[in-house]
Design a protein around this nucleic acid. Structure first.
Lengths: 333, 333
DNA sequence: CTGTTAGCGCCTTCAG
DNA sequence: CTGAAGGCGCTAACAG
């Protein structure tokens, strides 16, 4: 195939200048006489020249693309982050290579290496449990990495999150204040430190503050899907719980629907607080009270932080905590 | 910065072979004596050599990355397609550069050019209205392009869709068979040919088949968001309609909720059929009857088609229509 | 302000 | 089966 590409050399010849000069105008280098610049731009336009980013990347060692590792784009939680990431990336002239990992640690390592092979200038990682192997890869690479909506117990790399522990504590306290003594903690995999460490300890703290006793029987480990919630509802009810803090909206809706389909009234018979404040909480009846977390912003700030890292700017704080809140709706009294 | 990268040259030296040989083993070229191969692989492993994909891209003119233009990843409809695209891309060793366009035609053109500058091997485009300028860019480029979930009236490029017209006709016929004479058509922008041509003519055909008369007053043009649906509900009701075909699940849920919050019973007082069969249709009460379309598969097949195009394989048919269906739930009798 | 000259790291004939 | 050599298209000193 003879893909008739026109190169910087062609432009230089047509404009009677050297390729260096063409390179300068293309890159906005001020050291070019206006007249020359104009002439070159004209030729560029006439020839419809488009700089080859790959060649540029090889020569400059910068690709202006960042890798984004995400468990699943089709999950609204992550896709919200992704949108924030891309918007800020675009703002700073970066593109993102997006790869799904399914939270599978083996894939995560593969994908990361693949991204590094492609010479991305930085990486944003979203995941659950960060394995030691992955952490090893992180530190081995000289490429800046930022976690978004994922905590690294060691804080080796930058990260952007909310205070999951505090938010969960507040939510559980809300429930406790409404008179509940048996409050279920319906979690995703506890292996994920956000669940197993942050949120769980927030839950425990709340119980302690309110003089309630902790019971293993009120802890439910699950995945994040709607169907899981539906299936879990009965067990949660049988545990004696009269309220629940749920870590995922889909899960929460599943529980709420199953409970209601069984004739229970929410919030009269059972109260629920969920954690993501997605559109789902607004759509279902009753609407779900939820912790609010700025998903889009988490992504956006993570990307912003990454740009600073890539630019070798001084970072005041590489672990960023964004504000959260609680949006009270119909699933609590 | 002295990023101590180790190159193919280092490997060659350590292994006492030429870089050509290293290149061969890295690329799986069979013309290498097993012993040599083994030796090289050993050195690669020892030095932890990772081929530079950018250099490779420059030399081979293949980047093994494809560009994906998407209106909004945080929209479940598109993110489902994106997931299908990425899975198949991964399967074929491609990465995807994902960029949001907001369906803005100016951005789309920019983004496309940016992608082409990065020498992507192919492009998957998702959008609504394909402007002439964009179509011009498409045909000007020698890079294969496939549309996913988007129709190009001219069929200049490959595309993967369902039969929107037929699906809509069936849905409206379902409503007509239930005795409705005034059926609203609640659409996204009619500028999008999927709405303004395909679905609308399916709607009209159904009316005609059922001996119902078409009325402008029953056509509603909107965007896809939940809130729009809520706001639209009253107008739809005032139009005299007793049923509606809605093109977006969010929109449909908005209408259903607003109607019910106003005391109407669904499906007794009003029936609704929506179009995307997303989780939303399953979550709300009553559940929503919906056209089913294989979103993930549309993305997956589009990417598969693109791989063939990039590989210059013979294509039997570059316009692929995937099967659809109707999933009856509680919003219809 | 502009041109020259080296590469960036790898692939790909072409010989041998 | 293996090596040598010439780019791929562009950036980046370094002169002038």
């Amino acid at each position: 195939m003879e893909k008739q590409t026109i190169t910087i050399y062609d432009v230089a010849r047509e404009a009677n200048v050297s390729m260096a000069t063409v390179s300068r105008v293309v890159n906005g280098n001020p050291n070019v006489k206006p007249i020359t610049r104009k002439k070159v731009l004209e030729v560029i336009d006439r020839l419809d020249y488009r700089p080859n980013a790959v060649a540029r990347g090889l020569a400059s060692k910068k690709t202006t693309t960042v890798g984004v590792i995400i468990p699943d784009v089709s999950n609204i939680y992550f896709s919200s982050l992704a949108r924030g990431i891309d918007d800020v990336a675009t703002m700073y002239k970066y593109n993102i290579i997006l790869t799904n990992s399914d939270g599978d640690s083996e894939k995560e390592v593969n994908v990361l290496n693949n991204l590094l092979a492609k010479q991305v200038d930085g990486v944003i990682f979203m995941g659950h449990h960060i394995t030691d192997q992955l952490r090893a890869e992180f530190s081995r690479s000289r490429t800046p990495i930022v976690l978004a909506g994922s905590v690294d117990p060691d804080n080796q790399v930058g990260s952007v999150n909310i205070d999951y522990k505090g938010a969960t504590r507040e939510a559980v306290e809300l429930l406790a204040n409404n008179g509940h003594e048996k409050i279920a903690f319906v979690s995703g995999p506890l292996l994920d430190p956000i669940n197993g460490k942050e949120r769980l300890s927030g839950y425990k703290e709340a119980l302690k503050d309110k003089g309630l006793k902790y019971s293993e029987g009120l802890i439910f480990e699950s995945t994040f899907e709607y169907k899981q919630g539906v299936d879990l509802a009965e067990r949660v009810l049988n545990s004696g719980a009269t309220a629940a803090l749920v870590v995922s909206d889909e899960l929460a809706v599943g529980i709420a629907n199953a409970l209601q389909d069984n004739g229970l009234k929410i919030p009269d018979d059972f109260e629920i607080v969920t954690s993501n404040n997605s559109l789902l909480t607004e759509i279902v009846r009753p609407r779900l009270t939820s912790i609010t977390q700025p998903l889009y912003d988490i992504g956006a700030v993570a990307m912003r932080l990454l740009t600073k890292l890539m630019n070798k700017e001084e970072i005041e704080e590489k672990v960023v905590i964004l504000p959260h809140g609680i949006n009270k709706r119909g699933s609590t009294k």
